[in-house]
């Protein structure tokens, strides 16, 4: 057993879990959705083992470092945090329909990591001196927990819009969704959660930059875009607190916010140049 194989299985695990969640939703079967939870949990455990194994393997080839240092590894971690965060949400709000809209993100991240569409190298690379820091783990993990929450918030935003625009909001398929008020509440809480982690991610990044080259903020494109993303969510929260925005408009903003996250995470690497050479 090696980590590559185990990660391959994780891709299928998330595909399968997504499939069960979607099917359970379409057939309105709560029991089947339990299967989704089961598969998600198994896959998260397997993926955790895979990440641990990859970490171990990196030591075996003499370059030992946490598996958080290139685009491939970050996509794996992204899917892992999405699935993990989703399980937490499911546990907290006791609703499994969200799985059909959250797990596909975990699956998609793994597909991008594994398929080769993005020309991503799966190799374990040696770590350049600048990346050798304990702040690496703190920075990447905080950012990705935040990103995961924003991905799930996007899924919840989609649910809200679908439910809100359907004729029979409380019957049939739509009846299995949480009530709009609850969806709005979960959406808000998820974004708040993501916002705090993104804040921590930006701060740990700043501390790291300061310990590596004595400048905590250098307006590099990745930093700037993470700040823009942060502004974006700060604006959503303010609009809610001070102007009472909620419901559909916030659902759309949650979706827009996630595009912002995707650009910060992925777009910046390929369209702009800077210090964060991740994946290029």
């Amino acid at each position: 057993m090696n980590s590559a194989l185990l990660l391959n299985y994780s891709t299928f695990g998330y595909l399968f879990a997504s499939f069960i969640y979607v099917a359970a939703f379409l057939f309105k079967s709560n029991k089947a959705a339990l299967g989704g939870t089961f598969f998600t949990a198994i896959t998260v455990i397997g993926q955790t083992a895979a990440l641990g194994l990859r970490w171990y393997e990196s030591y075996q080839i003499g370059i030992g470092h946490a598996p958080l240092t290139n685009m491939y590894e970050s996509l794996v971690v992204f899917s892992w945090t999405i699935a993990g965060f989703y399980l937490y949400l499911e546990f907290k709000f006791k609703n499994r329909t969200i799985g059909a809209f959250a797990l596909p993100f975990a699956f998609a991240a793994m597909v991008f990591a594994e398929s080769g569409w993005l020309n991503i190298s799966q190799e374990i690379n040696p770590l350049i001196p600048a990346l050798q820091s304990n702040w690496l783990i703190a920075h990447v993990m905080t950012c990705f927990v935040g990103y995961a929450a924003f991905a799930v918030a996007c899924g919840i935003g989609v649910m809200y819009i679908i439910k809100d625009s359907s004729a029979n909001k409380d019957e049939g398929l739509m009846g299995t969704f949480p009530p709009l008020r609850v969806l709005d509440e979960i959406n808000h809480k998820t974004m708040v959660f993501g916002f705090i982690w993104l804040t921590a991610g930006i701060i740990t990044g700043a501390i790291w930059a300061n310990s590596a080259w004595g400048t905590y903020w250098s307006w590099d494109p990745k930093e700037t875009w993470s700040l823009i993303t942060w502004f974006f969510y700060a604006a959503i929260l303010h609009a809610r607190f001070t102007r009472g925005w909620q419901g559909t408009v916030v659902a759309w903003l949650a979706i827009g916010g996630f595009f912002n996250v995707l650009f910060t995470y992925y777009g910046v690497n390929f369209l702009l140049s800077g210090l964060h050479s991740y994946g290029s």
Partner: peptide, 16 residues
């Protein structure tokens, strides 16, 4: 505040 944040965000984007 929202207006200034919007301008700052736009300017920052141009700067990237």
């Amino acid at each position: 505040a929202l207006f200034v944040l919007f301008i700052l965000a736009t300017a920052s984007i141009i700067g990237t």
